[in-house]
Amino acid sequence: MYPSTFEYYRPSSVSEAIQLLSQNPDAKLLAGGHSLIPAMKLRLSSPTALIDITRIPGLSGIRDAGDRVVIGATTTYDEVMRSELIQRTLPILPEAIDVIGDLQVRNLGTIGGSLAHADPAADLPAVMLALGAEFKAIGPNGERTIPVDQFFVDLFTTALQPNEILTEIAIPKPAGRTGMAYEKFANPASGYAVVGAAAVVTLGNDGRVSAARVAVTGAGPYAARRTETEQALVGQAPTTEVIKQASQRASEGMTFNSDVFASDEYRAHLTRVFVGRAIAKAAQRAQG
């Protein structure tokens, strides 16, 4: 309940924040703090400095960039959920955010903070994978774009460099007959995903699946696409049987977490079930 001492910095620009990061190797960025502060209270994490980036102008907010929607890293869950643009173009986001943590967490927790933290049981990594998001990061050597497929590297590990800051998430707007859904089996205590499955399914004029992105979180050490499942869908009409066959492949090649609530075997099973449910819902929505 009582964190260790640390220095607190409140930079007013991204470059200042990067400079502070470079000067304080043990520092952590502080945004909503809803992953970091609980860890600090249990002294599982004791950074020597916190760099509060929530007051840096331009890091927060949602904008329409034509074929993409761009979300600033320090935008809170609540702001994303309530955005009319998001609700209209990326309804999977409000659907997933609605089952993240609780109201208070959603009020302060930030999109960028969650993604950069890469908790294996966080919801949004799977959603971002399914949406094909791109992450903008700024570091001492400038700016770069990281495709979501390269972002989640391992348990609590992303492609971000230690002195890089995630600044924006750009999400392509879905085209054509696209449906999307997030289905979650929540841990009853923590609310985190035991298994969360996100599916974005696009149907061609023939009613067959022309594109599908499916990802799971909670099940393994980091959120990951289920490409075997996606391949089994593309070109097929999304019948119950096709979805069932495709979702059976969702656990292939994965390493599953195991904890006091759910074993690896059970998680593998839930992965198949929830991937199936997410695809079915997404396909149904695509059909309109």
């Binding site: 249990l42 009853p188 205590a189 904890d259 006091v260």
Partner: peptide, 9 residues
């Protein structure tokens, strides 16, 4: 193993 409210439901 259920030493916090994160694990004890």
């Amino acid at each position: 193993l259920t030493a916090t409210l994160m694990d004890y439901a």
